[in-house]
Amino acid sequence: MDLSPFDDDNSVSCRLVSEIPEVCKTEDCCLGIDEAGRGPVLGPMVYGICFCPLSRKEELKDLKVADSKTLTEAERENLFEKLDEAKSYVGWALQILSPNTISTCMLRRTKYNLNALSHNTAIDLVQYALDSGVQLKEIYVDTVGPADKYEHKLSQRFPGIQVTVRPKADSLFPVVSAASICAKVARDRVVKGWNFTEDLGEVDTDYGSGYPNDPKTKAWLLKYLDPVFGYPQFVRFSWSTAQTLMDSKAVNVHWDDDEEDGEKAAQRQSNKSMLSYFSVSAGGNDQNATHQAHRFFTERRLKSLNTL
């Protein structure tokens, strides 16, 4: 697995692929989809697909691929080696969603939630397999959200292919376990060797599992909090763990689409104009004393100043 395309720019989403085995283009195939790193506040989320001819399903089972979560990192690396050795009939593809991609998508003006992001990433990977000539007949998917809806969505999107969306699919279907191993191996390697684009000098890499409840992760998040910038792009800003820490320890930042702020601002403005109205009627001063500037200025947000 060559991670250099992602390491070159780890702020964006990146696709890594194996060669497509010739046999997958001629024989009916099954394909498994799984993800790694959905929960952590650190590092990328990786989507993986793995595929092989239906006729070789059992051979995949014999490789003893199992749910990646029950394996140690070393065991996963080992199994990935085995998958690589089986490259004559097993292919895979990965989509690495950088933490920056996750943050900026989830915090977009028009919110783009993680489920939508995940589903679209999975769909894109399946489409990639189809476009590469893989003769897909069956798709197996591990899911976090409601299985029925997702299964329906995928079946609609890929007519003629039998779609099975199932919680814990990675322990039920070897092809999903294989996808899960590819995804997890990629995520582990990326997190371990994270290339900080920020100029932070030597960064302590003892960030634990990356899960918000891991004390090591928590300690790391406290250590690397910058009062103005918050965090390096390694951190998912959209996670409440990061948000809460920034709310309490970093300076406040306000955007024009902060809903509450927007309301507050509107309120403030209407208060102000109400106030000026009252002061006018009470003081008997000319209400329209304030001069209305030419639209050249209002369109350019240019105002006269009365003091510096």
């Binding site: 403005q269 209407s270 102000k272 104009s273 106030l275 000026s276 002061s279 006018v280 003081g283 001063n285 004393a289 304030t290 209305q292 500037a293 639209r295 209002t298 369109e299 947000r301 105002k303 009365n306």
Partner: peptide
């Protein structure tokens, strides 16, 4: 150039964004 038209050009009421009221002569007096 009615004020309403001007308001369309900017995102917020023209009068409200400014601090005139603070330095308004009435307020000062």
């Amino acid at each position: 150039e009615p004020p309403s038209k001007k308001r369309k050009l900017s995102d917020k009421p023209v009068e409200a964004g400014e601090d005139y009221t603070k330095f308004n002569s009435a307020d000062f007096a």
